[in-house]
Amino acid sequence: MLRRNPYTFVGIVSLGIAATALYFSFDLGKKIVDPEGFLGPAYVRLPGLTLLFFAAGIVPQAMHRYGVRRTFWGIREVIRTDWTWARFTYIALGLLSFYTCYVSYRNLKSYLPDLRPPNWDTKLDTFDHWLFFGNYPSDLLHDVLGTGIIAQIIAVIYVSYLMLIPITLGAYLVLNKNVSIGAWYATALSLNWVLGTISYYILPTVGPAFNAPTRFYEIQNTPAGELQRSLFRAGRDYIENPNSTSVYGIAGFASLHVSVVFTACLFFHMTKIHLVLRTVAWTYFVGTLIATIYFGWHYMSDDIAGLLIGVIAVWVGAWATGNTKRQKEHAAAGHPDVDNPDVFPHPHEEESSGDTAVSTA
């Protein structure tokens, strides 16, 4: 009965990590903060994106069904005929779970200097040097790719992650009518924040750029370099000023840039979205992977651990929402593990039976 609702598992997980963040916040005398991105606070950013995708989902349909002149009337009709309270509820649950896990992760990450000061950088840096036969992987990338225009391109790829991942989540939750698919993606992304937090506390590091900054001076005039300086200033303020409102945001192992983007790509591949979109996603992933080493955000060990987190997040997300192969076969036999109607029913046809093909709004 634990997984009768596709959001039960991630709901429990989000409550667990939130309780953990609140406990350490109280224990350390720190306030829970809502980290702000360049698009504003998460509690503004996520609902805003949802509204944009909601509009993108219904306006074209209204114009197509009822004509441009009757768009406003058509919007009302599309909402009345295609949207149910259940659908709104699932979207809200997906966003709330993601938001809760993310904010808890950011706060627990901020407590690292108090609870688990970094002490693994030398070991991981030495491993990188050994792995690449007496070379640092970042130096090799600088030699091969240069430190000019390519640095600017890779930096844009790296920092754009902050915007693209919430956008893909909003798209899947709002534009896709399949309950379990949206829940699967929301669960997988949320698990990245939880597993990433655990990895930070297992092997606390700051990463090559903060441990050995002289190796990265040539690429400081990039968006990624500016972000590193911003994180360094905030981190120093957090450590030196007990009353600081700054958020400490430096952690190396594991790479959540790699884990989250890999999670998205693996999920897109498994749900068979359009080949062009999958190709773009995997290309973006390769750029992200290169950027983590090129700018010294992470060691190779961090990226390998990030790949592992991505695999675990996607698989557990599939299991928790009834999307494994075995569960689908079980459901086809009439014994679903999770209540996940393939398509939201028409508000006036909720009493009807029969299978409906998966579609998008």
Rank of each mutant, 00 (worst) to 15 (best):
P6K: 01
Y7S: 06
A21L: 07
Y23H: 11
D27S: 11
A42R: 00
V44D: 03
V44Y: 11
L46Y: 14
L46Q: 06
P47D: 07
V59S: 10
T71V: 14
G74M: 04
I75Q: 08
I75H: 09
R80C: 08
T81I: 05
A86G: 15
T89L: 13
I91D: 03
I91S: 02
L93C: 13
L93A: 11
G94V: 07
T100Y: 01
Y102T: 10
Y105W: 12
K109W: 04
P113A: 06
P117T: 04
T122F: 11
T126K: 10
H129S: 10
L131K: 07
V156A: 14
Y158A: 12
S160A: 12
M163V: 14
L169D: 03
Y172P: 00
V179N: 05
S190F: 01
T197L: 06
T197I: 05
I202Y: 02
L203I: 14
T205R: 04
G207P: 11
F210S: 05
T214A: 11
Q220A: 12
A224V: 13
A224L: 03
F232G: 03
D237V: 02
I239R: 08
P242N: 10
N243S: 13
S244W: 06
A264N: 07
V280R: 01
A281F: 03
V286F: 12
M300S: 15
G310M: 06
A313Q: 02
W315F: 12
T324I: 06
E329W: 04
A332F: 09
P336M: 08
D342H: 09
G354A: 10
T356P: 00
V358I: 14
